[in-house]
């Protein structure tokens, strides 16, 4: 008998800065919404994120970038997922990303980017409504 199981979401902080208030609040909110959140902590490299996502077989990866390195870091994560045939994993992000970069990153395959001040419930709703293709 197959049972429905909670979504598994990797939440991590890429880049060198240590501002983890937002990611921790998001991790807690997703947990409270019934998801399994794999929290990887600070200073993750794109390589670590992708390797972890695959080992943990997550449905989605949520990354926070506040240091301005979003273009480099998100692109690298997407590239690595593709290389490893894991681009069915949804990537979303949060942080300070200027509008034109948002467009470019969405084009590159980032599913959503949440700017500063986004209500947590919006993020939770987004994750909940992810298509369950897997």
């Amino acid at each position: 008998m197959t049972v429905t199981s909670p979504l598994r979401i990797l939440i991590g902080k890429v880049g060198l800065d240590g501002h983890d208030r937002g990611v921790k609040l998001i991790a807690r909110a997703l947990r409270d919404a019934g998801m399994e959140v794999i929290y990887t902590g600070l200073h993750q490299t794109p390589e670590q994120v992708v390797s972890t996502a695959i080992q943990e077989d997550v449905d989605a990866i949520g990354l926070s970038v506040l240091s301005g390195a979003h273009m480099t870091l998100f692109r690298r994560v997407l590239e690595l997922l593709k290389e490893q045939g894991a681009d069915d994993i949804v990537v979303f992000g949060g942080g300070i990303v200027p509008n034109e970069d948002v467009l470019a990153l969405k084009e590159a395959g980032v599913k959503a980017l949440f700017g500063p001040g986004t209500p947590l419930e919006d993020i939770v709703r987004f994750v909940k409504e992810l298509p369950r293709s897997r």
């Binding site: 909670p6 991790a27 807690r28 997703l30 947990r31 409270d32 919404a33 019934g34 998801m35 399994e36 959140v37 794999i38 929290y39 990887t40 902590g41 972890t52 943990e56």
Partner: peptide, 14 residues
């Protein structure tokens, strides 16, 4: 897992 929501915060990997 939380008995109420079924969610979990898995942090051992850190």
């Amino acid at each position: 897992s939380s008995p109420v929501t079924g969610g979990a915060l898995l942090g051992d990997r850190i």
